[in-house]
């Protein structure tokens, strides 16, 4: 099945890319292509996309349309790629591959949930092509790097021909496949803060170990003070709402407490209350709610263990 014909523009600098986007408001960005090129292929048998019952109505899912404008391929822009460690945050280029996230010692150490999310995405082949920015901008509710990014408080840096702006990942993702990217804008990099005495984890529930879309995904991050109390936490739920859900109740319930078993149980119950899953072919609403509570407890437990072992030797933890 040959791809429909389209024009590809290949910028050799970021400014050139932004000029192209400015001149073609209908352009679409091509990064790893593991979503876009699949979406561009004409349907062979189906006349309409398969939509699980209740899905389209409740979430207004936005399927890709026929391409009208050109594709702007980002493969020549080296500056959009790679991870850099700065004093208090990691800067991840938008076209950093998912495989690079999964194998990064920097992320494994400081932002474990993101490395674990990346390692759980798709297959090794897809991870070698698929990009971090692509996974975020496709904005699927179950996206395995997006959910940890929400828990870790990621900030997205967007460039336009004449300006740049920053937006929190929570404000960026509006619905399934819907994002707050304006015409002419490009996601250049993602900034993720990290702290001393921080630990995080991502757990994905599925029926297969590869090429799975999560039935439920939970990312948890915990930052402890020197006395071992929670000063900051983030729990994000995937596949149980139209976007990843950042659980405010969970963070409130943990704040200021030593995260013992009772505190974690209370926080997990709070997470369950914030989940808004539907029943579909992957799992029922009731099952997902149970699993949100269970996986939140496990992810928080793991995150707390990691935060404690990240504490400097001799420090109380």
């Amino acid at each position: 099945m040959v791809l429909p014909s389209f024009q590809v523009l290949i910028p050799s600098s970021l400014q050139e890319a932004l000029d192209m986007l400015d001149g073609h408001p209908d352009a679409r960005l091509l990064a790893g292509g593991t979503d876009l090129l699949v979406d561009l292929r004409p349907a062979v048998i189906r006349s309409a996309p398969f939509v699980p019952q209740g899905y389209a109505d409740e979430w207004g899912i936005g399927y890709q349309q026929e391409p009208s404008g050109p594709l702007v391929s980002l493969h020549g822009l080296e500056q959009l790629r790679g991870l850099r460690s700065l004093t208090s945050h990691v800067r991840a280029g938008a076209t950093t591959t998912v495989a690079e996230l999964a194998s990064s010692p920097l992320l494994r150490k400081h932002l474990t949930a993101l490395a674990e999310g990346a390692a759980a995405l798709g297959t090794p082949l897809v991870r070698n092509r698929g990009t971090y920015g692509g996974n975020i901008c496709n904005a699927r509710p179950a996206a395995d790097t997006l959910v940890p990014t929400v828990a870790l408080g990621g900030t997205l840096h967007l460039a336009h021909k004449n300006s740049t702006r920053k937006v929190s990942v929570v404000d960026f993702v509006l619905g399934p496949g819907r994002i707050a990217l304006r015409a002419g804008e490009l996601l250049t990099h993602i900034q993720l803060p990290f702290f001393p005495r921080q630990g995080s984890a991502y757990l994905k529930l599925g029926t297969r170990k590869a090429l799975e879309i999560a039935q439920v995904g939970v990312a948890a991050s915990v930052v402890l003070d020197q006395a071992g109390r929670v000063v900051h936490s983030g729990v994000a739920l995937g596949a149980v709402g139209p976007t990843p859900i950042l659980c405010h109740g969970t963070a409130e319930s943990l704040h200021g407490h030593v995260p013992d078993q009772a505190a974690i149980r209370a926080a997990s119950l709070a997470a369950r209350r914030e989940a808004a899953p539907i029943s579909d072919h992957r799992a029922s609403r009731e099952y997902r709610l149970e699993m949100v509570q269970l996986l939140t407890r496990r992810a928080l437990t793991r995150a707390v263990e990691r935060a404690r072992s990240a504490a400097a030797p001799g420090e109380q933890s």
């Binding site: 099945m1 590809v8 091509l30 790893g32 292509g33 593991t34 090129l37 699949v38 292929r41 391929s73 495989a99 798709g122 297959t123 090794p124 082949l125 897809v126 070698n128 092509r129 090429l211």
Partner: peptide, 23 residues
Amino acid sequence: EAGDCGACTVLLDGDPVPSCLVL
């Protein structure tokens, strides 16, 4: 032709990739 099966795998700069999803 959707990156699911791996039959089209080639090594691109040493890394295995689905060549159906590379322009």
